[in-house]
Amino acid sequence: MLRIHGLHKSFHHNKVLRGVDLDVEKGDVVAIIGPSGAGKTTLLRCVNFLERADRGDMYFDGTHLDMHRASTRDMLAIRRRTAFVFQNFNLFSNKTALENVTEGLITGRGIPPRQAEDIARRALDKVGLSNRLDYYPAKLSGGQQQRVGIARAIAVDPEVILFDEPTSALDPELIEDVLGIMRTLAHEGTTMVVVTHEIGFASDVASQVIFMDEGLVVESGPPRQVLAAPAEDRTRQFLRRILPATNLVV
């Protein structure tokens, strides 16, 4: 459904992505793992055109797009078919929880306000926040903010949701709330690409795990392969560092 080919991106002289491929089928949950600085976040941001790639091709349902040359209209079209969940939430601080969800529906997609509100209520109900509709982000805890962020993403019924380290900015006791919601979404068949440090989540939920390092995909495949029996040294080293107790059961 979504295929990225030969993605390159540098910041000044720093080559962050050096030819990355990504292949996402409908219903896939793709977990992208790897050390910091590997280019995981940049990859995700390029897919949503929050960064403009230096080079790369995108095939979305067969439609080809040159990622470097994409026009404003192309970018808008892709963004309206996808959704993005940010590491630091980025809720609109001047909008309530409900308005945060309706904004993309009403303004972005021209859905009538009343209908948009119904959709938003359902989405917020799904993440367990139907009692916080009129709260402004400043009044919500980090975990609640991220749940609004997820509601904002699912409300627009996107073909794929991009999660950029959605639990990294959360206090440990709040992480499971958010991961639980993501699990539910995965079971319902939502197509998701998740940059994460939660190896447990990746091994439970992902249909495909991608290990990235130094701007390249080092290895990819089902979790039982990449996480339990990695073929590459670098993957093994990374996993050993991040899971000192190596008692990963897949």
Binding site: N94, R152, V156
Partner: peptide, 23 residues
Amino acid sequence: VDKGQLEAALASGLSVWQAYRRI
């Protein structure tokens, strides 16, 4: 204004103009 606000607006499917006007 944090850059993330613009990014979130764009990712929500707003055009740049809409993002500025509304957020």
